[in-house]
C-alpha cells in the first residue's frame, strides 16, 4: 500500500498495464511532451517512447476512430480525450463504431479500447468546459462506463479496463485528481466492473453517488450524523454500465429511503434511470419518493457564486434527506 493522489494511481495503472501487455499504447492530445493536461501520463513518453505514447493533432473523432481501427487490428489502445467536453466531436465514433461493431458484425469484430476523459464542473471553466456526461455514455448499449471516485478504485478499475474485450469509457472527475488515498501496489490488483462500493454503512437513508458526487454524499452523511442523528448509507456506483442495482436495492430495502446525487443535469439524467429502477424493484419498501439532487438545468456559468448555486452541494443533499423525514 502507498498513499497517492488519484492522478498518480491512474498513471501507475497505465504503466503497469503497458509493462504487462505490449499491445497497449496511448494516444491523445498533449499526452506526451506536455505530460498530459492533468499530468496523468507524465513521464510515460520518456519511459515507453514515441510509438507507444503518441501525441496527436487536435482531431477527436480521428483519435477515437484510429483507436478503434487499431483495436480491430489486434492492439489494445488507450485514447485520451483531453476533457469530456471535446468528446462530442468523437461521439459518432464512440456510439456508432465502438459500441456497435460487435453486435452489428454478429460477433466478428470486437473493439478492445479504453477511452479516458476528464470530466465535471466546479472549476469556473464556464459552460463549454464543465460537462458531466457519465449518464450520456451509459445510455448506449455496447459501451461500458466507469467513473472512479477514489485513488484505489481509479487504479483497480483502469487496470480492469485493459482486461476487457470491449470499449470502456473511463471518466475521471477533475475534482478527484488531487485526492489522496491508499492504493495497493500489487500489479494484479483489479476492481471488478458492476460492483458498487458501500462507502459508509447506515440505517436510515441510502445516498447514491458516482464520480464527483460521491464525496458530497459522504460529507452529507457526516453532517447528517453529527447534526441530525440520521444514519446514512453511502453507495458509490463505480460503474454505470454494468450497473450494480442489486447493492442499491438491498440498501434501500434496509433504509427505506433513497437519495441520488449527481453532477449532471437533472432532466433526463442518469438519476432518473436509477430512481425508476429503485421504484421498480423496491416500491413497497420506500417510505418516501426517491429524491434526486442534481445540477440545475442551466449551462454552468463562469461566476463562482452562480456556478456553485447551479451545482449540487452537500447542503442540498442534507436538505433532500431531511425532506424525507418530514411528515
Amino acid at each position: 500500500m502507498a498513499i497517492m493522489r488519484m492522478r498518480d494511481a491512474l498513471r501507475e495503472a497505465l504503466r503497469e498495464e503497458m509493462l504487462r501487455d505490449e499491445r497497449i499504447f496511448l494516444m491523445g492530445e498533449d499526452i506526451g511532451l506536455y505530460g498530459g493536461s492533468y499530468a496523468v501520463t507524465k513521464g510515460l513518453l520518456e519511459e515507453f517512447g514515441e510509438e507507444r505514447v503518441r501525441d496527436t493533432p487536435i482531431a477527436e473523432s480521428a483519435i477515437v476512430g484510429i483507436g478503434i481501427g487499431a483495436a480491430m487490428g489486434g492492439l489494445h489502445p488507450m485514447v485520451e480525450i483531453m476533457t469530456i467536453n471535446f468528446s462530442f466531436l468523437a461521439l459518432d465514433q464512440i456510439v456508432n463504431n465502438a459500441a456497435k461493431l460487435l453486435h452489428m458484425s454478429n460477433g466478428q469484430i470486437n473493439v478492445p479500447l479504453v477511452i479516458r476523459m476528464a470530466s465535471g464542473g466546479g472549476s469556473q471553466l464556464a459552460a463549454t468546459h464543465s460537462h458531466s456526461l457519465e449518464g450520456l455514455y451509459a445510455h448506449f448499449p455496447g459501451l461500458k462506463v466507469v467513473c472512479p471516485s477514489t485513488p484505489a478504485d481509479a487504479k483497480g478499475l483502469l487496470k480492469r479496463a485493459f482486461r476487457d474485450q470491449n470499449t470502456v469509457v473511463f471518466i475521471e472527475h477533475t475534482a478527484n485528481y488531487g485526492l489522496r488515498g491508499e492504493v495497493p501496489d500489487d500489479p494484479d490488483f483489479l476492481v471488478e466492473f458492476g460492483v458498487a462500493n458501500v462507502m459508509r454503512e447506515g440505517t436510515d437513508v441510502t445516498i447514491v453517488g458516482y464520480s464527483g458526487s460521491v464525496h458530497q454524499a459522504v460529507r452529507a452523511a457526516q453532517m447528517l450524523e453529527e447534526q441530525e442523528e440520521i444514519s446514512a448509507e453511502v453507495i458509490d456506483l463505480r460503474t454505470l454500465r454494468p450497473l450494480d442495482i442489486e447493492t442499491v436495492v438491498r440498501s434501500v430495502k434496509k433504509t427505506n429511503r433513497a437519495v441520488i446525487v449527481e453532477d449532471a443535469w437533472r432532466f433526463g439524467g442518469f438519476g432518473g434511470e436509477l430512481a425508476a429502477q429503485v421504484m421498480e424493484r423496491a416500491f413497497d419498501w420506500l417510505d418516501a419518493p426517491v429524491a434526486r439532487v442534481a445540477c440545475k438545468d442551466v449551462p454552468l456559468p463562469y461566476n463562482r457564486n452562480l456556478e456553485f448555486h447551479a451545482l449540487p452541494s452537500e447542503e442540498d443533499v442534507v436538505e433532500a434527506v431531511l425532506g424525507m423525514f418530514k411528515e
Binding site: 480521428a62 483519435i63 476512430g65 484510429i66 483507436g67 481501427g69 480491430m72 487490428g73 489486434g74
Partner: peptide, 10 residues
C-alpha cells in the same frame, strides 16, 4: 477513414 488509419497503426 480513421479506422483504416488505425489498422495501419496496428
Amino acid at each position: 477513414l480513421p479506422l483504416a488509419v488505425g489498422l495501419g497503426v496496428a
